[in-house]
């Protein structure tokens, strides 16, 4: 062993961290890496991706479908399609409004500074959590059983799924309301209701308004697929067309949904800007990664 080599070995022993991960760490990493690869392979196997013939045949069928989808055509059903689209928009708007009418009082009640009784607030909040945990489409399936096929089931499903989320958002906004403003109103001799009206409501109403528009946008998306389980709207037409292999009409309906969603998003964004100003148009994508 030469002098440099022994010096090198001594350095390695004295400062192991400088020479990269130790053999034990490397082995551990290799084991974890192998396990991860195995897990992914297992997932591919379990979901049927390793069945090459099925995959190949499916892709072939998909290409065949695409040929039938283009060009999209309404084949004389345009008026029915537009009616279904109007139904979808109506379901979204009325469902959102219904959810709001119920969620605003519930949200105020779920706020600590409005209802100081833990005994009442706790079950209310758990109930709202339960509503929130169930997806709109599950609600739609249930309401189709309760009130029958049609857009009314969709309206109820949208409202039921949104009440929980909305009440939570409103409750949090009420709890986070600036105390100084509330105290200021109270110091002028205002009663409980007046404090609510002039101390809390002005702080909460922008939150309610902007969320109303957000929920409307997202509900137009939801309402467009609720028809798949029979709850009315354009989704019903779409799933019917797919079931009977009318692919050019299916594509036409998909494009119609895209245009409607885009139009509602644009309208709602401009309304939001006018009602509450620029600040609220910021969204999660604006977050810069820290340097």
């Amino acid at each position: 062993m030469t002098a440099t080599e022994s010096a090198d070995a001594a350095l390695r022993i004295a400062h192991p961290a400088l020479f990269g991960p130790s053999p034990a760490t490397r082995r551990l990493r290799a084991v974890f890496g192998a396990l991860a690869v195995l897990a992914v392979l297992g997932a591919f196997w379990r979901t049927g991706f390793l069945d090459a013939t099925r995959l190949w045949q499916g892709l072939g069928k998909l290409g065949w479908l695409l040929q039938f989808m283009l060009p999209p055509a309404h084949n004389g059903w345009l008026l029915d399609f537009l009616h279904a689209l109007a139904e979808t928009l109506g379901m979204a708007l009325f469902g959102t409004a219904l959810a709001f009418v119920i969620a605003v009082p519930l949200g105020f009640l779920a706020a600590r500074n409005i209802l100081p009784l833990n005994l009442l607030r706790f079950p209310l909040r758990r109930g709202l959590d339960g509503l929130r945990g169930i997806d709109t489409l599950i609600w739609a399936l249930i309401f189709v059983n309760v009130v029958g096929l049609g857009p009314f089931a969709g309206v109820l499903a949208i409202a039921a799924a949104d009440i929980g989320v909305l009440a939570k958002i409103i409750g949090e906004a009420v709890e986070n309301a600036d105390r100084r403003q509330i105290e200021g109103v109270r110091s002028t001799g205002a009663g409980r209701l007046q404090t609510l009206r002039f101390g809390i409501v002005p702080q909460v109403s922008p939150v309610i308004l902007s969320n109303g528009l957000y929920f409307l946008e997202s509900n137009v998306r939801s309402a467009s697929i609720l028809g798949v389980v029979g709850a009315g709207g354009i989704g019903q037409e779409l799933s019917d067309r797919i079931r009977i292999n009318n692919w050019d009409e299916a594509m036409f309906l998909i494009l119609l949904i895209l245009v409607a969603v885009w139009a509602i998003d644009t309208m709602s964004a401009s309304l939001r800007m006018r009602l509450i100003g620029r600040a609220s148009t910021r969204h999660i994508g604006d977050k810069r990664p820290s340097p």
Partner: peptide
């Protein structure tokens, strides 16, 4: 992004048959 998941699922169930492959 704009086409709902469920619509893709409907189409893929038709192409690849019933099962998790279409869902994934």
């Amino acid at each position: 992004r704009a086409v709902p998941e469920l619509v893709f699922a409907l189409i893929f169930v038709f192409a690849f048959g019933i099962g998790p492959l279409a869902g994934v």
